[in-house]
Design a protein around this nucleic acid. Structure first.
Lengths: 142, 142
DNA sequence: GTAATTGCAAATACTTTGCCACGTA
DNA sequence: TACGTGGCAAAGTATTTGCAATTAC
């Protein structure tokens, strides 16, 4: 099994969650796909379809979100997106407003300083940020 | 009438939209409130409730979004948020994950350089970004 | 007068919950 | 065994559309 999947399962177990087939398949899917996915996408993905109900995937994502294993993102679509959180890794995204494609941005995130500044000035706790770039990808621009 | 509201109405007119009571009240509400609002919030706000149907507000927001007068934001809540776009002005937001409060951040946005870099490297067109900070506000942290 | 806009009601889409059966620890 | 998890079905919330009536220009 993929090392990241195994590590993530460990984090879940440490959080008091039981190791289930649905959990394994869902995390494996998120790791393999390597981009935020919707509940519907996950529930219909090869590893999960026929494997468990959409409600199960929903509640699993809910628990994973509570434990800080995944994060729920609002990316303009009507459906919510869920992304795996990997300790020490931060990701920003580039999204095509035409075809909806989503890719992670390689460049280092330029927001950490401002984030620290905000934390100090406002007294907010557990601060994190979400940064997305939207536009029309070359393919859709034609 | 507020100058920004008047200017914005002009922009709408230039875009081919008709000047209606609903438009005036909606824009005035967005300007006064000065933060992103949901469809439900807008439809139930003092200036719009009893003034027009929620479907009307929905379609109005839809047209304003097409014309680039407002922008639809995905901010984690189930409902979409709509923010007035003012030419030459850019806003990032600070959001409390407990109480849902939303405020604009004063500090200059540190993302423009990266945005230019992405535009050049990826060939994306009409690029813009959305940056939000999430955390627990001092009041909710107790 | 003509085309954009609106209201109302109905249809969608996505999310969330209840309840009991099941599987993991 | 005990409690977290799962399946199925139903309910809830937000969004979107059809169509006839109205209004801005």
């Amino acid at each position: 099994m993929n090392a990241l999947v195994a590590e993530t399962i460990d984090r879940c177990r440490s959080g008091g969650m039981r190791r289930t087939k649905a959990m394994e398949q869902l995390l494996a899917t998120l790791v393999e796909t390597d981009r935020p996915m919707t509940l519907a996408e996950l529930a219909e993905s090869p590893r999960l379809t026929d494997q468990c109900d959409k409600a199960t995937v929903f509640r699993l994502l809910q628990r994973l979100t509570e434990k800080g294993i995944v994060r729920r993102l609002g990316l303009h679509e009507r459906a919510a997106y869920f992304a795996l959180l990997v300790p020490g890794r931060h990701r920003d995204y580039l999204i095509c407003t035409e075809c909806g494609s989503i890719e992670a941005i390689k460049a280092p995130c330029p927001v950490h300083e401002l984030e620290n500044e905000i934390r100090e000035k406002t007294g907010f706790r557990d601060l994190y940020h979400e940064l997305e770039f939207f536009g029309t990808c070359p393919r859709c621009a034609g």
